[in-house]
Write a protein that binds this DNA or RNA. Structure first.
Lengths: 365, 365
DNA sequence: TCCCTGTACTTATAGGCATTAATAGATCAT
DNA sequence: ATGATCTATTAATGCCTATAAGTACAGGGA
């Protein structure tokens, strides 16, 4: 709170004194509820505000039950991570742009620990803001559920579900995007595909992608056996996975994480296997841990910026009661043509199921 | 504000009612100032708190305390820029960490336009926070001066001066760091150096670097003529600059912007000139516009994270009146040994001044 | 008995704002 | 002139907590 040049704090009472009106009148002007006021009164108050640079104290405002045009941003991990990972950056970009254009400021909550908590001692500091945007790869859903139960307005960025609790969220349509990539590969003549993911995939977004993959496969009358799902436990397994794929006549890979695709590319280079001439590889948008790439990967991109903007818009719409809560919004992913997929090399007579991989490549579902 | 499950809000007054004491007594227990209380009273209050799950409302708490534990962050350009430039990122990292550990949250001000304004309609939203951190390559110093005039507590990240106005800022010691790099080159036997910068350099930080360069040169009894300053108008000029340098027997370059150094590296590669065997190149910390590099540049790094942390600490110290305002802090840059400088190839007999470059390479000062 | 000194609390207030009920003043009809 | 009806503004209240100031009571000394 700024001290005014003359010592005392800058409050509505002070403005009122300067303008020769009551504190209540200042409050009316500040909040635009000044229809009833004389132009003269309004102007005197405005002039005093202008001259002093007065701004309402958000704390007092919240306490008094008002709104403060502050949007909370809670991330379940550090916003600005040490390792230079850009995960949050594009989201924040969209959030900032949209908040800016709608006249809201951002309140970024800091909190210690790797896993950040909303509730500390049973209370949430989010209350400082009118509503909040929640981001994070590893949210504590118990905390989110509690927040929802309390009726606090928030929008999650990313598809999140709580059983028996409807949530507001803005999600990329991974299912649709993955289905589109899968169909594209089928169009190119591929009949033996595999879906690869690290560490059993990334929660709900991962599950959505797999759903799209299987959906497209079923539509093309490819059964589960012909469209396997391989869990890879680390990028160092890339070589072995590639071997398995080639051994079993797989001609196209859908890879959830780009970092895994990069490892595959290295493995391909080592064996003189060409992408896409020998094998097509599509990347499904997850760029965790990647900084730059030699390859122009085909697949799709997650519209992070748009998601951030849409979530911000949605939250503000809810706060200003233009949209009922909860509300879900879906954003299409940006398809990337790229150069890592191509027509199948030697189309096989369809129908032969893909055999089990040799080693610890488990097939899920 | 969290609602009590049973409908009414859970306040100290409510706890007091349950425990049969006054609200003030509850406050005393909550804040551990209960030395004067009977064990019995204390226990009754504690039991009531326990049973209801009451926790003090942080908002009312700060209102009563007069501070809101909010630190404003104002950037004179977009915080999250479109082009993926990480300029602000490391600063924010340090700010976030320090704010977190000192119990402050961050209020990021959004505002439209490329050049962001502190004052909109004659008022400053910074007042929302207890104090603010200011960042930016192109600050509007008139606005900063106005802020200082109003007595608003702020700390600038980066060396900034306003004539006749003392400011608080945390700056990297470019002068010292550049002097150190220069001395290192002199130790390696170089006697013909040049300082290269794009677009007439980067304001105050640029001026500080040049000062360090010239300081070290003078100490080594090299006059201005032997230590020229070349302004380069664009990276596409790198080839020509390199030609000039080689023609004139210059063996070491101090390059303000890494992006210019990258262009020089490309030019060297094109002419089969080796860095550092044929020419030494030191980079003076400015990484604007660079994403990754093939070269392990010698020179120094700007301690952005430390600067952010130090500025945050300084601001909080000022707010909590442990340090008087204004206050200036200097942070040493991290020297980088790197592999782009080496001993001079063919030491010349010293003393010969560097001739003027042929073309539009102007020598400043 | 009266005063004094603690002790164990309570009362009152501030902190800055939003909001509602109340009031003074002006206008109008009767 | 009197009340009725508006209109512009203010006084009062609540939000929840921390804290300074105050009070009631007990015990001890003179």
């Amino acid at each position: 709170m700024t001290a005014n040049p003359r010592g005392g704090r800058l409050t509505q009472a002070e403005i009122a004194r300067i303008a020769g009106v009551s504190q209540a009148t200042v409050s009316l002007v500040v909040n635009g509820r000044d229809e009833a006021l004389t132009d003269d009164t309004r102007e005197r108050v405005r002039a005093a505000i202008e001259r002093t640079g007065y701004v309402a104290n958000p704390i007092a405002r919240v306490l008094a039950g008002g709104r403060n045009k502050l949007l909370g941003v809670h991330t379940f991990e550090k916003v600005f991570p040490l390792n230079g990972d850009d995960f949050y950056f594009p989201f924040l970009l969209g959030i900032e742009e949209e908040a800016e254009s709608l006249g809201y400021d951002l309140l970024m909550f800091t909190s210690s620990g790797e896993q950040r908590r909303i509730f500390v001692d049973g209370r949430s500091r989010l209350n400082l803001a009118d509503g909040a945007l929640l981001l994070g790869r590893t949210p504590d859903m118990a905390e989110v559920a509690e927040l929802a139960r309390l009726g606090y307005p928030f929008v999650f960025i990313g598809h999140r579900e709580i059983p028996g609790q409807a949530l507001s969220y803005v999600a990329a349509d991974y299912t649709d995007a993955t289905a589109a990539v899968t169909r594209r590969l089928l169009e190119l003549g591929h009949r033996r595909l595999a879906y690869l993911r690290l560490d059993a995939g990334g929660g709900q977004p991962g599950a959505d992608r797999v759903a799209g993959y299987q959906l497209a496969a079923r539509s093309a009358r490819l059964g589960p056996a012909a469209t396997p799902l391989w869990d890879v436990s680390g990028v160092d397994e890339a070589g072995a996975v590639l071997g398995d794929a080639l051994d079993h006549g797989i001609t196209a890979l859908l890879v959830e994480q780009q970092i895994l695709a990069e490892a595959l590319a290295a493995a391909c280079a080592a064996r003189s296997v060409s992408i896409p001439a020998d094998i097509s590889v599509a990347v499904l948008g997850d760029t965790i841990g990647v900084r730059g790439s030699e390859t122009d990967w085909s697949g799709f991109q997650v519209p992070k910026r748009e998601m951030g903007a849409a979530a911000t818009r949605l939250l503000i719409d809810q706060l200003e009661e233009r949209v009922s809560r909860p509300h879900v919004e879906s954003i299409a992913c940006r398809p990337v043509e790229g150069s890592s997929i191509g027509p199948v090399k030697t189309p096989l007579a369809g129908g032969a199921a893909v055999p089990e991989p040799r080693r610890n490549r488990s097939i899920t579902e």
